[in-house]
Amino acid sequence: TFTSIVTTNPDFGGFEFYVEAGQQFDDSAYEEAYGVSVPSAVVEEMNAKAAQLKDGEWLNVSHE
């Protein structure tokens, strides 16, 4: 299960995956970082959410 939350205070020191406002979700980078295949429906969902981000916001993507 993939989830996401919007934050204005990303923790770059941890093992977190963020999408910056104005960027798209990079499923290849996510797969490389976590060894998890990302279904195309999830990629579309995360890109739709990322498109709604305002300046200074980040989308924190995770999975269980």
Rank of each mutant, 00 (worst) to 15 (best):
F2A: 07
V61N: 00
K54D: 05
A29G: 07
S4C: 12
N47E: 04
E16R: 06
V36A: 04
A21P: 08
Y34R: 08
A50Y: 00
E31D: 04
K54A: 11
W58R: 03
S28T: 13
H63S: 05
S28M: 13
Q52V: 11
F25Q: 01
Q23H: 14
A29D: 05
V42D: 04
H63K: 02
G14A: 11
A21Y: 12
E64C: 14
A29H: 06
V61F: 00
S40F: 09
F12S: 06
K49V: 07
T7N: 03
P10F: 02
I5A: 11
F2V: 10
E44K: 12
I5P: 05
F15R: 13
A51T: 07
I5F: 13
V43D: 02
D26P: 04
V36M: 08
V36Y: 04
P39C: 06
E45H: 08
L53H: 03
D11R: 09
G35W: 03
E16V: 06
F12N: 05
K54C: 06
S4P: 08
T7P: 00
T1W: 15
Y30H: 01
D27L: 13
T8I: 10
E44L: 09
Y30D: 00
N60S: 14
F25T: 01
V19C: 04
E45W: 06
T1Y: 15
T8S: 10
E20L: 01
G56Y: 05
A48K: 13
G35L: 05
E44F: 03
E16T: 08
A50P: 00
E44S: 10
D27N: 14
W58T: 02
V36F: 06
G35R: 05
N9Q: 12
L59I: 03
F25Y: 02
Q24F: 14
S37E: 11
F25K: 02
E45A: 12
N60I: 15
Q24K: 13
Q52S: 09
F15Q: 13
N9P: 01
Q24N: 12
V6E: 05
F25L: 04
P10W: 00
N9C: 14
F2T: 08
V61G: 01
Y18Q: 07
E44R: 11
P39Q: 03
F2M: 08
E57N: 03
S37Y: 11
S40E: 12
G56E: 05
E64D: 12
E32K: 14
S62V: 12
D55V: 10
K54S: 10
N9K: 12
T3Q: 12
D27G: 15
V61Y: 00
S62P: 03
Y30Q: 01
V42E: 03
Y18S: 03
M46A: 03
N9M: 12
T7R: 00
W58L: 03
G13Q: 11
D55P: 14
A33R: 15
T1D: 13
D27S: 15
S4H: 07
H63P: 03
Y30T: 02
P10K: 05
S40N: 11
A33M: 15
L53W: 00
G56W: 04
L59F: 01
F17Q: 03
N9F: 09
F2G: 07
E44M: 10
A21R: 08
K54T: 08
G22A: 04
V43M: 07
K49C: 06
G22H: 07
V38N: 00
N47I: 05
I5V: 14
Q52Y: 07
V42N: 01
D11S: 11
E57I: 00
I5N: 11
D11G: 07
S62N: 08
G56P: 03
A48N: 11
Y34M: 09
A48D: 09
K49H: 07
K49L: 12
V19W: 02
T7C: 09
G13T: 14
T7L: 07
Q23W: 07
Y34F: 14
M46P: 02
S37L: 10
F15C: 15
E20V: 06
E16M: 10
Q23L: 08
A29W: 08
K54V: 09
T3L: 12
A50V: 09
E64N: 13
Q52H: 10
A29R: 10
Q52M: 14
L53Y: 00
D27A: 15
Q52C: 11
V19N: 00
E16N: 14
A33N: 08
Q52F: 09
S37C: 14
W58K: 02
S62A: 08
F15D: 14
F2C: 09
V38G: 00
V38R: 00
A33W: 13
G22V: 01
I5D: 10
G13H: 11
A51R: 12
P39E: 04
K49G: 05
F17G: 02
L59C: 02
A29C: 09
A29T: 06
A41R: 11
E20I: 05
W58P: 01
S40V: 13
T1V: 14
T3P: 08
P39W: 00
E64M: 11
M46C: 05
G14T: 07
E64T: 15
I5Q: 12
L53S: 01
V36T: 05
E44Q: 12
A48C: 10
D26R: 05
E45P: 01
L53P: 02
A48L: 13
E44V: 11
V36L: 07
Q23M: 12
S62M: 13
E16Q: 12
A41C: 12
V42T: 06
D11H: 12
G22C: 05
T8N: 09
V38H: 01
E57H: 05
E44Y: 01
S40D: 10
N60G: 15
F17E: 03
P10I: 04
S28R: 15
D26M: 06
S4Q: 06
N60F: 12
E32S: 13
L53C: 03
V42L: 05
V38Q: 00
V19T: 05
S28P: 04
G14E: 08
N47G: 03
V6L: 06
T8H: 07
T7K: 03
D11M: 10
E45G: 05
G14R: 09
K54G: 08
A50R: 01
L53K: 01
N47L: 03
V19G: 01
V61I: 13
S4W: 13
V36H: 05
G56L: 03
Y18G: 01
W58V: 03
T1F: 14
V19S: 01
E31M: 12
D11P: 08
G22F: 06
Q24L: 14
I5Y: 14
T3E: 11
D26C: 07
F17M: 03
A41I: 12
M46G: 02
A51I: 07
T7I: 10
A29S: 07
V61E: 02
A21T: 05
P10R: 04
K49P: 06
Y18W: 08
D26N: 12
G35K: 07
G22I: 02
V19K: 00
S37H: 14
P10E: 01
S40G: 10
L53D: 04
A48F: 10
G35Q: 06
K54I: 09
